[in-house]
Design a binder for these strands. Structure first.
Lengths: 335, 335
DNA sequence: AATAATCATGTGAACGTTCACATATAAGTT
DNA sequence: AACTTATATGTGAACGTTCACATGATTATT
């Protein structure tokens, strides 16, 4: 019995219910200013026509889109993917829809494109996953037509709205634990240092060694991949580095390094202790199970939406950086 | 010198350039029907006012939103995350924006919510990552207000527009290879069987054994996680299963299984051969490097957008299922 | 030189909502 | 009984575009 009107409008419903379009509008917006009697009649008409409010028209009229955008760099990576999940969940809970935009490369053209898009989009706020050091982000922030932006995984102590996990602290936790358990030759495999988290973790390692009057033995830079961890570990040994422990900037590289060390006849943890970062779900099943610094990326994503919503409600409340704390998870890759 | 009008409109630009709004509209839409002279004048005004066309208004007037939606189940998993990346890339290349919606649980309420949202959204098409067997998807498809939908990772031989990777074939590739290299006791750890890919892989394994007149030795079901692979391998042995090879439905479970087997004193590949599925980037750095069936999820995502765009252009062209082929990648976890 | 065709521009009404009012009826106060 | 107040509804103009058409100026055709 459902008349198949392509898309019923407010007016179609009004006509069928014998009221004005405004009354229908009141019904769908839960206005108290409408009698129970007519409300029922309208509801029935809505049902009968399978009416759904047109979001576009509504956005145009109210000048509110109820839409957020997430701009991410590298969906392929574990961290960003987890953050996205968190952002989506929180956005949905708050009644916002989510545009999704990924940057594969941080080129000027791609960034430009993204900025222009943002301006056209009628978006109420942006979660920017900005894990890499780049002036392009600043450009985006400046040119964004006053749309609130919350940055994730950016640099520490930055003054604009942002949330980070304290990587320096995380690295300190890892390194200090190794020192406390008797190690004094602690090498490192860092992430790509133009990534904020990689840089912070690296400095945390350096600072902790310094505080304990230890020399930074040796380190190399990887690219987050297991392949690069494998190469890095081999390199370290090739260059004659002596170490009894290894701080590795993420779990994937740790996996690669474990394989390399084994190839070199080194046992873990007997000959070298390892601690990683992230605590990916697989980390417990490395051989040996990996001691690592857990990052709650998903919560990070959720909180970014909370923050954003606060700013949207009151732009004055846009105040600085919030910081989450990582946690050392002890398993069997160290002693 | 830039006057900071919150949002300049077509009319603001028209006034400044001394033309009608329609002329400005022509300019921004690259209509040939405008003299070079006035085009310049308009362009200048646009620049000066920092004008950006309002996407919402345009969508309302043209009844085209230039927006696609991706509905996914489990961003946390490797496959879906990769597909998303592909979808985003292709959508952007085609000039479409992308709404992102994730389902954490396949409950009626969540699905209902998603369907209602779709109807309101003014979206031109939907990529539905539907890796799990559920009637709820059918509901979504039926009630979608005639919006084109392309399903990914759904069941084989289904008649609506969809793209899958041939998991049955993949499993056949894996199992047959083991048989060809001399194995006759081939056990399996499957994924959760209500997942389409898991079911297809499982059947592929069964069918291949049957074709070769071998008995399916034994198998257990995991949940894709490394933890479940670990448990499953232990279980298999606890139950007295005898096998010289193991087909494991994804690489993460393979990782867990490898650890379990080693704990039981079994060497890989000397005592048991292993082949996984997916070829996650870490698979080369398992110990031993994992032989596995590579899935090109990212291409799958891209192609879904191509298909969707075809359907949008010509709804008649919505025809059936397209199939991609997986590939066996030989490494060192078998012999 | 007159007529037709082309080009450059303008005008007003859509698109489907909400917003700011205006109006009519009912109920409450003095 | 007259006057205020509250309640239920309707009216027309926004929102910022595009669309369909109308107009006037230029150029081409016979």
């Amino acid at each position: 019995m459902k008349p198949k009107i392509a898309h019923a409008t407010l007016h179609d419903v009004a006509e069928l219910a014998g009221v004005s379009h405004q009354t229908v509008s009141r019904v769908i917006n839960d206005s108290p200013r409408v009698s129970e009697n007519t409300r029922q009649r309208v509801l029935e008409a809505i049902q009968q026509l399978n009416y759904q409010p047109n979001h576009t028209a509504r956005a145009l009229a109210t000048r509110r889109s109820l839409t957020l955008e997430i701009v991410t760099f590298g969906v392929g990576y574990y961290g960003p993917a987890q953050m996205m999940g968190g952002v989506e969940r929180a956005a949905k809970a708050r009644g916002y829809r989510l545009f999704f935009s990924n940057l594969d490369r941080l080129t000027y053209a791609d960034m430009r494109e993204t900025v222009e898009d943002l301006k056209r989009q009628q978006v109420e706020g942006v979660v920017l996953i900005a894990p890499v050091r780049s002036v392009l982000y600043e450009e985006l922030i400046k040119e964004r037509n006053n749309i609130p932006v919350v940055q994730l995984a950016t640099q520490k102590d930055v003054t604009f709205p942002s949330i980070i996990i304290d990587q320096h602290l995380g690295s300190r936790l890892a390194t200090q634990h190794l020192i406390d358990t008797g190690h004094s030759s602690i090498a490192a495999i860092s992430g790509p240092l133009h990534w904020n988290d990689a840089a912070a973790r690296h400095e945390g390692w350096l600072d902790t060694l310094q505080d304990n009057h230890l020399n930074p033995v040796n380190w190399t830079e990887g690219d987050w991949s297991a392949a690069s961890g494998y190469r890095a570990a081999h390199e370290l040994i090739d260059h004659g580095a002596k170490f009894t422990a290894l701080v590795i900037a993420n779990d994937q590289m740790a996996l690669g390094a474990i394989l390399a060390l084994r190839e070199r006849g080194l046992r873990i943890p007997e000959d070298v202790s390892i601690v990683g970062f992230d605590d990916i779900p697989e980390a417990s099943f490395f051989d040996p199970p990996l001691t690592t610094i857990r990052q709650d990326f998903s919560t990070l994503g959720e909180q970014s939406v909370e923050y954003l919503v606060e700013i949207i409600a009151d732009p004055q409340s846009a105040a600085g950086q919030r910081v989450l704390t990582p946690r050392l998870i002890l398993r069997k890759s160290h002693r």
